[in-house]
Design a protein around this nucleic acid. Sequence first.
DNA 1: CATGAATGAGTTTTCATTCAT
DNA 2: TATGAATGAAAACTCATTCAT
Lengths: 209, 209, 209, 209
Amino acid sequence: MKCLFRRRKEARPGEIAAAALDLFVDKGFAATRIDDIAARAGVSKGTVYLYFDSKEALFKAAVEATMLPALEEAEALVADDAKPAADMLREFVFGWWQMIGSTSLGGVPKLLVAESGNFPETVAWFHEAVIDRALAAMTRLIEHGIARGEFRNVAAPVAARIVFAPMFSYLVWRRSFEQCLRDLPPADEFFALAVDLLAHGLSAREAAK
Amino acid sequence: MKCLFRRRKEARPGEIAAAALDLFVDKGFAATRIDDIAARAGVSKGTVYLYFDSKEALFKAAVEATMLPALEEAEALVADDAKPAADMLREFVFGWWQMIGSTSLGGVPKLLVAESGNFPETVAWFHEAVIDRALAAMTRLIEHGIARGEFRNVAAPVAARIVFAPMFSYLVWRRSFEQCLRDLPPADEFFALAVDLLAHGLSAREAAK
Amino acid sequence: MKCLFRRRKEARPGEIAAAALDLFVDKGFAATRIDDIAARAGVSKGTVYLYFDSKEALFKAAVEATMLPALEEAEALVADDAKPAADMLREFVFGWWQMIGSTSLGGVPKLLVAESGNFPETVAWFHEAVIDRALAAMTRLIEHGIARGEFRNVAAPVAARIVFAPMFSYLVWRRSFEQCLRDLPPADEFFALAVDLLAHGLSAREAAK
Amino acid sequence: MKCLFRRRKEARPGEIAAAALDLFVDKGFAATRIDDIAARAGVSKGTVYLYFDSKEALFKAAVEATMLPALEEAEALVADDAKPAADMLREFVFGWWQMIGSTSLGGVPKLLVAESGNFPETVAWFHEAVIDRALAAMTRLIEHGIARGEFRNVAAPVAARIVFAPMFSYLVWRRSFEQCLRDLPPADEFFALAVDLLAHGLSAREAAK
DNA sequence: CATGAATGAGTTTTCATTCAT
DNA sequence: TATGAATGAAAACTCATTCAT
């Protein structure tokens, strides 16, 4: 019994941060009330302030605490293999969608876009800790393809961003236009075509003609 | 003199809506104070309420009033010509960037993403009036390419979304990560490569091989 | 034409005051907007300020200007005749109801009761100019009855107030509970019984027994 | 100590409602500021909103919460005894004045008259819960007197209203013309004469003559 | 004289934050 | 630790009043 209670107690900050993140993603920072966060986490308003100094601190903690563990897992996605780059690209996209995009972490980019004006430091942190790292990995992947003669000799850092564009867009569209999405294609179909188009677009064979 | 003043007077609501849109895009709906909007428009707080019933009404009006005139111009971008589809694609993307993406209208998508949870009707309106129309135009363009034998036989509506992804992403990134954008490529370079990759990706020649 | 226009112009202040009084009676001083008064008087908001210095001044003017002409007429109601006092009482009550109580002047007491805390001077004026005068007249009437041996020897000033109570109450009830007045008796019946009860109550014959 | 504090805490809403009623009666609904209510109740502005949703809700609650307990006590005033009706009438009037009229509850009628245009539902509630009940009781009392051969055969419901008129009027005059009441007779004298006049006016003995 | 657009002081209302229990 | 009542600063909104035309 003591053990269960202990565990509960220690999990509190995490539960609060998770509840906060969900609500921030859904309604934005300003429109989310501490009361709502407390209610969703099943604690009282005062308890929130026991673990977090302020609403702003809670925002930053919620974003960072939720991203950090995911980052480690994500890193593993980009094992520098000797596989064909097109295959790696496909695996990267689908792996990301499964592990991150389709989970509740997928809401973070939308949230940071929305609050970019109000939380410059958090945005900067996210950019460094997540975006830059992901871009670097994708850049390496593309350079790997170029080196293998598989891909055309394009500007890899620019191409990396173009590869991320469908992933980012799908994520944000899904979260923002939920109500009017009769015809947003399912993720499988969307990403299959996206990878197909990008791989063909990058392919050296066509250009060789 | 009288004429100038008259013009000023009649322009008031538009000036206020424009000021409001700028601030909403920058700081979000909740973090924007009516006082700030009034100050930016060069009027007093009371004047804002002379023309708009509430902050919410101002939000809706700002979005719709700014988009409507642009929509008409935008429609003209998609003249159903007999040109090669790849050329049309390039012209569409660059025309859009010049006329919309790089202007203050480019902030609207970011704003609606941010406030999607709080303004479902406005988001729905935008989806119908802007997104659906743009998707339809792009779908036609791709089908045109397929019909000419220029493009592969892909699912045009899905491909249309993939084409919009870099445009949407660049817009949003630019507005959201201004501070940490040392290495976001300039629009010209980004869109040149994006169009290049997508046109190659769609091209029927490679597949024919 | 000029004549008509002139007349219209000169009548403006009175029209505004009348419109104001109606609205003040209906909604109270604070809940009445200058815009509404202007609209009801068929002029613009600025015009109201052409004739009245402030909303408070308009309140006072509306009350006083509407009461003054009525006061003169009312004075005539109490001709010190040699008639039986009971008859005079009956004539006074019904005459008052016809000339004042049932007209739009009947709203003034309710208004002054409502605003007594906010307009002490106007209330004081009304008390002196109207209530005191009316009480004095009624006191004289009762003393006349006592002197004739018709009425018992009661405290005339107190009895005068008791005589006014049904008149005042009917007026106020009528204006305040309009909505739920299924069973407020018609004025004729109410005042007939009131005069009957009071005349009998004052009558010396019963006491003589 | 804990007990005292507890009691204090639970009494808060009632204290606020009481403070509100006092001020509403004095200055009217619109002219009363929430700040003033809070100050008089000895709490902060925010605390008022802890217990009441809005100023309007506070108005309704203040009226209803203050009247309800009084209604029960009041009901007991009209024990259907076998006493002479004239005695019952006297007891009713003086009992009412002691228990209600002279207390802070006595301000409610004035308040509802003043705000009748703005709070139709509250006025309707008061009419049903208070006025109709009181009229019914008084009507029964008069019918009792008629049945005993003590009173003349008058229309009892109309007479009931006439009996209430001095009570209502004295209440309202007292609260509205405080400043200029040099010569309003004291309650004892006023009601003694009122009861005397009405009892005589209703008496069957005189009519028999 | 008449207008109505513009103003800004004053009020209601919300909600992050504190603190006694 | 945990609670939730209490606070008050900050923001939306109203409307009497002014003034250029």
